[in-house]
């Protein structure tokens, strides 16, 4: 049996298949549907300092090869998350990663501390890239200097592995990635959704209550794959590929582009079995290729020159 395990610092995962933030809520909702035993880690829904109601509906719109969402970071807030949701999620047989979203540097630091000090939490992911919450002229996800500040402050508040989830809509993703790495990030997740919208011509109105939202699903795969390719060449910390992963081969594409692990999100909606099928598919490929672990695949496409 090949060993699928990978690690990001002290976050040890039995497979490189992580569950992306937002899609599986606080985990327990999918108990009995997802085989969490095949999952490397569950990235829980992003929490903020205060509870958030989220955007007005409709919040979803399926589009060609993708899904638009404008949830608006609806969440119960850090306090209830730690009191109610985390104990439920900790029953699940996979490490938990808290995803936190702050409005400013202080909030990120506060959230990283509060989540990081809980033993149920194996790592913290900083969601600097949720496209639906904007406060400033230059948004955080596109601003390397401010990302650096956020990561530096979060770093001082927790010793747990810190993942930073980047946005593909940042003009210069590589600079943001390097800033995060220099500031002490243990891994970079590449990446979040792309902005998008659809209009209902009959209603003469946007299909999303928030007008615009984030595009996930199959359409995102080539976009974020190219970013993983660029980012992994520019940093030394592990990169986690995310966007449109539905099959083991999709996961391998990210790995061969330079990712150490992948996150599966939208694919869970159409098939909750997707994460375990991806993991078993990876095991089969390793066996076929006579490999004992995933590491020989990491960045393999680059070694072949990249036609």
């Amino acid at each position: 049996m090949p060993d699928l395990s990978v690690a990001i610092g002290s976050l040890r995962m039995r497979t490189p298949v992580m569950l992306a933030s937002g899609t599986v809520g606080y985990g327990a909702e999918y108990e009995g549907l997802i085989d969490f035993g095949a999952v490397g880690a569950i990235v829980l829904k992003t929490v903020t300092v205060q509870p958030r109601e989220g955007n007005r509906p409709p919040r979803l719109c399926e589009t060609e090869a993708g899904l638009l969402n404008a949830i608006g970071l609806e969440n119960v807030g850090i306090e209830r998350f730690l009191e109610e949701e985390l104990p439920r999620a900790s029953r699940l047989p996979a490490p938990l990663v808290a995803s936190v979203g702050g409005g400013d540097v202080e909030e990120f630091a506060e959230l990283a501390r509060a989540a990081g000090e809980r033993e149920e939490i194996a790592a913290v992911e900083l969601n600097i890239s949720c496209p639906n919450v904007e406060r400033r002229r230059l948004p955080l996800w596109a601003d390397p200097d401010r990302v650096k500040e956020v990561v530096v402050e979060a770093r001082t508040e927790t010793s747990k592995p810190l993942l930073v989830k980047l946005s593909p809509k940042a003009g210069d993703v590589v600079s943001v990635a390097q800033a995060a790495e220099r500031a002490g990030a243990d891994a970079l997740v590449v990446g979040n959704t792309l902005p998008g919208m659809r209009i209902d011509v009959d209603a003469r109105a946007p299909r999303l209550g928030n007008a615009t939202g984030g595009l996930s699903g199959p359409a995102l795969l080539p976009v974020n794959l190219a970013l993983v390719w660029e980012v992994s060449a520019a940093v030394t910390v592990p990169v986690v590929g995310s966007g449109g992963v539905r099959t083991a081969d999709h996961a391998l594409e990210y790995v061969m582009a330079g990712a150490t692990a992948v996150q599966v999100g939208t694919a869970v909606f159409s098939d909750p079995r997707a994460p375990s099928l991806i993991a078993s598919g990876l095991a089969r490929t390793l066996e076929r290729d006579g490999l004992e672990d995933v590491s020989p695949y990491v960045g393999l496409a680059r070694k072949r020159g990249g036609r």
């Binding site: 899609t23 809520g25 109601e53 989220g54 509906p57 979803l60 609806e74 909606f269």
Partner: peptide, 26 residues
């Protein structure tokens, strides 16, 4: 309402109620 997860996880299918947004699915 348009739904994604169907199990209350993604908060996509909310309906506005007097007590705030509630999911149509869960």
């Amino acid at each position: 309402e348009i739904m994604a997860c169907g199990v209350g996880a993604c908060r996509g299918c909310v309906i506005e109620t007097e007590g705030g947004y509630r999911t149509a699915c869960k």
